[in-house]
């Protein structure tokens, strides 16, 4: 093992997540263009290319690109409508923004040498906090103190209700944590595992297995990307529903 380590087998599974300035390597201020900036910008461009330039024809019989755009639209639209009801459609652009950003960031992150913005806890944390704060404010604005009924389970026996209220309260405040960590953790885990397999590929006798492993994990990641985007959005819809209709 030691000899192999000497021949240059090195694990840097986390190196891909380092935020670096794009030009030079000075300190990172809040306005410094970094690789995170670059890949967020590319995400933005990709989404605009699909949803704006792809639908330029406004064709009744859609082209391939346009039908993909329509599929995305239809999927998120249906999700919002099914989960939150008709009155949730007001927030459809917001949900669509989240879904598109996460989906495209996930997939762009799968490109070799790229930087996956959704693997950063800062990014997913902001996304989840936006949802959390937005939903909480919306709940109080729409329902007033009635929103607190979310924590007071009327269907439970009276003695159990305070206990349940505490549990509900905790689970409510854990929401943004699990919401953000789930996405970042999934993406990070996949990328780190691919990197670990890639490091193993430096050893000749294990390389075929490692390459197979990379292929397998990559395929899994392709699936995980869309599932995590879907899950993030559908949980957003569920929280939105709680805010709009807090009755249990």
């Amino acid at each position: 093992m030691a000899t192999e380590a000497d021949t240059g087998l090195a694990f840097h599974p986390m190196e891909q997540f380092v935020v670096k300035p794009l030009f030079g390597d000075g300190p990172i201020y809040w306005y410094t263009p970094t690789n995170a900036t670059l890949w967020m910008g590319l995400t933005l461009l990709a989404i605009i290319a699909l949803l704006v330039f792809g639908t330029r024809g406004r064709a009744i019989i859609p082209s391939r690109v346009q039908s993909i755009a329509e599929m995305l639209y239809g999927m998120v639209h249906k999700m919002v409508e099914d989960v939150t009801g008709k009155d949730g459609l007001k927030y459809f652009p917001f949900v669509m923004t989240l879904f598109c950003f996460i989906l495209f960031a996930n997939y762009l992150g799968l490109l070799p040498k790229s930087f996956s913005t959704t693997s950063q806890i800062a990014v997913t944390g902001v996304l989840a906090l936006m949802v959390f704060v937005g939903v909480t404010v919306l709940g109080f604005v729409k329902n007033g103190t009635h929103f607190l009924g979310l924590f007071w389970v009327n269907s439970a026996p009276l003695a159990l209700r305070p206990v349940l209220a505490v549990i509900e309260l905790i689970s409510y405040f854990v929401r943004p944590v699990s919401h953000s960590i789930r996405l970042a953790g999934n993406v990070m885990a996949g990328h780190a595992v691919i990197k670990v397999f890639a490091a193993f590929a430096a050893i000749a006798w294990i390389a075929p297995l490692a390459v197979l492993g990379i292929v397998g994990v990559y395929a899994l990641e392709v699936m995980v990307c869309i599932i995590q985007a879907y899950v993030f959005t559908i949980l957003t819809c569920v929280y939105l529903k709680d805010a709009l209709h807090p009755s249990h």
């Binding site: 997540f17 935020v19 995170a36 967020m40 806890i121 800062a122």
Partner: peptide
């Protein structure tokens, strides 16, 4: 690198 707080401001701003 995810826990490197010094880059948070940058990421959040661009996000």
């Amino acid at each position: 690198p995810q826990l490197d707080v010094s880059t948070f401001g940058n990421q959040i701003f661009w996000l």
